[in-house]
């Protein structure tokens, strides 16, 4: 295992990118910040699989690829399975000695958006986690089907407007709460599960390295603010992420071996969720008087979840 130094950003910046520019992700998209960071965390050879989604359609449009390592896309739902197959083949060929370099250190990674992770590829992900392949699955969670123009997913938070859960005269947007994918993955008894955010680059890099180093199936949910569908200025991607983590809308934590929970970031000043909501067009309607109760509910949900995380951290069970 060859991990690279993340002592500070200066050290980290000496890495040579393996994710190239002139991909066609939107300007300011957090997906590529997260992908770059993952690829810069390690010197190892990488086999990466991507589900269909923004990342995939923007980084491998013939005749161009933005990937400087082995990469495969099959369909919307099966990146975890594609990488399972590749990992199984790696083991089989290593045993037989038919690899080009039988000593090469290889890490297997799968990327999916929240559409493919929470929804259409959920079964494939669960299967791969249960089988215990040595791989890391990273969800780029932008809380909607951004690639198809912003439809609801089961990761879309309550109250958000999407094209298939619209806010209108008779609706405040999505009615259901976000699915707790991290808890579900931890329930697979995965050795390492975490929720991370690109604004906290160091905890994200540390989490990535831990996942890559840990043998077995690891899962990381990353918040990936989407300027196009969340409706904010592209320059504010990191500012919005700061609000997400400082309002605890998106708490940063890890769960080891399915039970040992560690909170990785505690905001000095926890901000009210209004500040996060007000910064995005998708929540604009919540500030009408008749929707005030939704903001209250969101805040209540955040408080309860944060309380739960802290208790679990204390309890160490």
């Amino acid at each position: 295992m060859a991990i690279t130094s993340i002592k500070n950003l200066k050290e980290f910046s000496t890495n040579n990118d393996r994710f190239e520019g002139a991909h066609t992700l939107c300007p300011g998209c957090a997906h590529s910040m997260i992908v770059r960071e993952l690829m810069n965390c390690t010197d190892d050879n990488l086999v990466i699989a991507s589900n269909t989604g923004c990342l995939e359609v923007s980084t491998a449009v013939y005749p161009f690829t933005s990937w400087d390592t082995s990469w495969i896309h099959i369909g919307f739902e099966n990146a975890a399975t594609a990488v399972s197959g590749a990992e199984a083949m790696f083991k089989a060929r290593k045993k037989k000695g038919t690899l080009k370099d039988n000593d090469a250190s290889v890490k297997f990674v799968a990327f999916g958006g929240d559409g493919s992770t929470y929804d259409i590829g959920f079964q494939w992900l669960s299967g791969a986690m249960e089988r215990g392949h040595d791989f890391t699955y990273i969800c780029l969670d932008n809380e909607n089907y951004a690639n198809t123009g912003g439809q609801r997913s089961s990761a879309t938070p309550i109250g958000a407007h999407t094209s298939t859960a619209q806010a209108g005269t008779h609706s405040y947007g999505k009615k259901q709460k976000k699915k707790d994918i991290v808890a579900i993955m931890a329930a697979h008894d995965a050795p390492y599960v975490a929720q991370l955010a690109p604004n906290k680059w160091k905890s994200m890099a540390k989490g990535f390295q831990k996942a890559l180093e840990t043998e077995g199936p690891c899962f990381i949910n990353t918040v990936s603010p989407c300027c196009t569908e969340w409706k904010f200025d592209p320059k504010d991607t990191i500012n919005i992420t700061d609000l997400a983590t400082d309002t605890l809308m998106f708490p940063i934590y890890e769960i080891i071996n399915g039970h040992e929970l560690n909170i990785l970031y505690r905001p000095k000043n926890v901000l009210p969720v209004e500040e996060y909501l007000a910064a995005q067009g998708r929540y604009k309607h919540l500030f009408k008087p008749e929707n005030k109760h939704v903001i209250e509910e969101i805040q209540k949900n955040i408080n309860e979840y944060w309380e739960m995380l802290q208790r679990r951290e204390e309890a160490r069970v």
Binding site: K10, F12, S13, D17, G21, P27, C29, H31, R36, W201
Partner: peptide
């Protein structure tokens, strides 16, 4: 000041940093 914030958060691999 070569803090490398721009390098780590550039989504387009467009910040050219060499030797810190």
């Amino acid at each position: 000041i070569d803090c490398q914030n721009c390098w780590v958060w550039c989504p387009d691999t467009s910040i050219i940093s060499r030797d810190k």
